[in-house]
Design a protein around this nucleic acid. Structure first.
Lengths: 149, 149
DNA sequence: ATTAAATAGGACTAGAATAGTCCTGAATTA
DNA sequence: TAATTCAGGACTATTCTAGTCCTATTTAAT
């Protein structure tokens, strides 16, 4: 099902809370309480987000986490890759090494186009968009086919 | 890394071979030999593709598999969902039940927009595109941001 | 200084999902 | 009737994910 890990899902929930809330600094334990996610898990996620420069941490009493950038500048692609590594659908899109599909596989290049497309889609949606109230317009279409034809 | 399963990857390799080859009917054992994928695994994949109406099978001696439609009419989205079920990034995009992120999660609607976008991207690329020689144009951009702004 | 609050980093475990195999049955051709 | 080939499902082993926990480090307050 082209799955995103649970942790990434949690991350968007956590970041949405942080972006919505007026208060700047949030301790891990506070975030755990608000979101209902267990503290150790929250900590783990927050650490990953710090490493990806999405959050800035402060240690010690009164410490905690704040957004490193404005919500408009934090993309969904960034969030995903913070928790799951590079966004790619297939192994060989990341590195060609180890792909031993000797004879059959000539489609690497095409996969990488699809990957770029999806990456770009995720890159164009930000945290600010995620916390925006949804106004659904059903007929939004993105013609990726133009890449090929 | 927003991963696609290995089996799905194999499926594209198998289908690419079948689409490229002039001969219509291919037995599982033959496909295994050409692609270098183990026979039981190939069989498993082919069965899934038959169930998804991507392939048609014929039993008995001289039996085998053929494409159910023209390569132009088989989308990447179809191939992926044949092997992995519905394309969605998060659980709650498939069903809202069981999402107990009581307080924190107000972003379901927005995720579903992203899902639609990606689904649409995958829907617009066909098997025919996959077997086409790649002509890379680096600056292809798909403005999903227009969905929100 | 000392204590309490908070993150950093990494090791570890249990459970779930995936990949892969195998077996038995059914259909078709020669 | 025998050989070939797919159908369906059970099964196993390995990998991955989610989640927990421990120790060290940093900072603020008293």
């Amino acid at each position: 099902m082209l799955r995103l890990s649970k942790l990434t899902d949690y991350a968007t929930v956590i970041l949405s809370f942080m972006a919505r809330d007026k208060i700047q600094v949030h301790a891990a334990i506070e975030i755990a309480a608000v979101t209902g996610i267990a503290l150790p898990t929250v900590s783990k996620i927050l650490k990953s987000l710090v490493n990806a420069n999405v959050l800035i941490s402060t240690r010690g009493a009164k410490g905690g986490y704040i957004l490193a950038r404005k919500p408009q500048q934090i993309t969904v692609a960034t969030i995903i890759s913070a928790l799951e590594g590079p966004i790619a659908l297939t192994e060989c899109s990341i590195s060609r090494q180890g792909c031993e599909q000797a004879s059959g596989c000539d489609i690497g290049g095409n996969w990488s186009l699809i990957n770029k497309t999806i990456h770009n889609a995720l890159e164009s949606v930000t945290l600010a968009d995620l916390i925006r109230p949804v106004v659904v317009s059903e007929e939004v279409l993105v013609p990726v086919s133009s890449i090929y034809r």
